[in-house]
Design a protein around this nucleic acid. Structure first.
Lengths: 182, 182
DNA sequence: GTACAACGTTTTGTTTGACGAACAAATAAT
DNA sequence: ATTATTTGTTCGTCAAACAAAACGTTGTAC
């Protein structure tokens, strides 16, 4: 997609999410509202300084202006996912998630054994968990969107509501990435 | 720092990393080399389409143009690492890396088969790679700090210098997290 | 030595983004 | 109902980004 369209949508989305009118944002960003109007309608090629002013006024990372909104949860099976170009045939890489900046990510390696379910309480609002089963089989996710994952499966789901982990095989290894607001 | 300066440096850095001359890149990006010269020298306010053309010609993600390092490397074997407290005995979690905010992380799942080595060119300055082998055996890392990793092993190393991946077993699955400056 | 090519910078002209004002429409206030 | 305020869009002007060519410099060939 064309960059100007992506940006146009992104700005409108972020602006409305912040509850600001076009005029108010223009004023806050020290821009002419006509400029903002043209940028948001997608029929102009904004300069960097203009976009910088918008991002600063919205107090969002600069890169937010180049991203589409992600779905809340996404399951990518071991044999699924869009492969990233690789020059060597023996390697195939799948990009599971492209992270916005200004997020904090902790990486966990979890060993689990068959047994009782582990219930996790809700983490801070906005937390997202990335689960990737390295070996074994587990059932993971919030109560309404649990998924059974086998080795290689990737599952992303909201971590700011109660969720649980259950080891279905004798043993399992789980890579868990906690993605939370800074 | 001013955005135009960040971008000016980023373009020059990426261009030289790709081994392209200013003229060559301008030609490839379908831009006048005068334009590129002014953008790189930091005394102009490039538009989005111009930057888009540059990023496309360099075949780098758009966000790479906004990045500015303290690379170190750390190896945590499958049975190593400080366990995080867990209420349920069947689960043990190891925190592999606690991320600073304002970093961007992309998560990859990589399937590799025994064969030739994959050499990766250097990523932008400050990039750190987190490699976690889910299955199989691989030799990973920059040339001076390569490590042989088995299932469960975690290795963190600088991604802003040339490094390589080699699959030692018949097949292997690798979780790779690219951690770059925003 | 000259001739040639490639490099990046500087100059000049054209195109276009950003601004301010005027605009109509919808909402709020009196 | 009328006035006032806020909404977002459109138009004319100006400054600046972009493109093309000329420029000085460097390195190589002959």
């Amino acid at each position: 997609m064309e960059p100007k369209i992506i940006i146009a949508n992104a700005i409108k989305r972020e602006r409305e999410r912040a509850g600001l009118s076009l005029s108010a944002l223009a004023n806050k960003a020290d821009l002419a509202k006509s400029t903002l109007s043209q940028v948001e309608s997608g029929n102009c090629n904004p300069s960097i300084e203009t976009l910088w002013a918008v991002a600063t006024a919205l107090s969002i990372p600069f890169s937010f202006l180049f991203e589409h909104s992600n779905p809340k949860h996404e399951l990518i099976r071991a044999n699924e996912g869009d492969e990233v170009s690789s020059k060597v045939a023996h390697f195939s890489a799948v990009l599971l998630d492209k992270a916005p900046i200004n997020r904090m990510r902790d990486i966990y390696r979890i060993h689990a054994q068959k047994g009782e379910i582990r219930d996790a309480t809700a983490h801070p609002t906005g937390t997202i968990e990335h689960a990737l089963v390295a070996s074994g089989c587990m059932r993971i996710g919030p109560s309404q969107m649990q998924e059974e994952l086998n080795a290689g499966d990737y599952y992303r789901y909201p971590g700011d509501i109660a969720h649980s982990y259950e080891c279905l095989s004798e043993e399992a290894t789980l890579i868990l990435i906690m993605d939370s607001n800074a």
